[in-house]
């Protein structure tokens, strides 16, 4: 059990460190969705509500912290926001990094559960569209285009 946690944290630490703008955040998101939709991937195993609770709690705390650092970095750099509904003003200053990280982690967790029972990545993508809305890391959440490749390239180590 510990090994899945360590594996996910190592990958997340490496990938999130490189996220410096909205496009890279979208790349991170695509990769995590792919991991969570791959049966028995370390991500799927790490998300299970089984095993030792203190270990899980520690794992989730650390992942949340990595996400919060990234959110904070993006907010500081004034990463441009979602333009679909935009009326000109950005809302970047309002972003609370810790709370946003909780929502993103919850979206990954809840969204992957909904996607597993639906056998469809759509719910997970809908969850992340909502959670990442302040950073314009939204996808065209359309099953037909799920395989579109990322313009910024593959972020796998």
């Amino acid at each position: 059990m510990r090994t899945h946690f360590a594996e996910v944290l190592a990958r997340e630490s490496a990938c999130l460190a490189g996220v410096t703008d909205g496009a890279k955040l979208a790349g991170w998101r695509r990769r995590v969705v792919e991991e969570l939709m791959t049966p028995l991937s370390p991500y799927v195993l790490a998300m299970r509500q089984t095993g030792d609770v203190p270990d899980r709690a520690d794992f989730l705390d650390r992942w949340r912290e990595l996400i919060a650092e990234t959110v904070d970095r993006l907010a500081q750099s004034g990463t441009t926001g979602d333009t679909r509904f935009s009326s000109g003003q950005t809302r970047r200053a309002d972003v609370d990094a810790q709370k946003t990280a909780v929502l993103i982690l919850a979206a990954l967790h809840g969204g992957s559960t909904l996607s597993q029972i639906a056998e469809d990545p759509w719910p997970l993508n809908a969850a992340l569209d909502l959670a990442l809305a302040p950073f314009a890391a939204t996808e065209d959440n359309c099953p037909a285009r799920a395989g579109t490749s990322s313009p910024i390239g593959n972020m796998n180590p």
Partner: peptide, 9 residues
């Protein structure tokens, strides 16, 4: 769906 995922997560 996003709201449900936030709730469940």
């Amino acid at each position: 769906t996003g709201l449900m995922a936030a709730l469940q997560g």
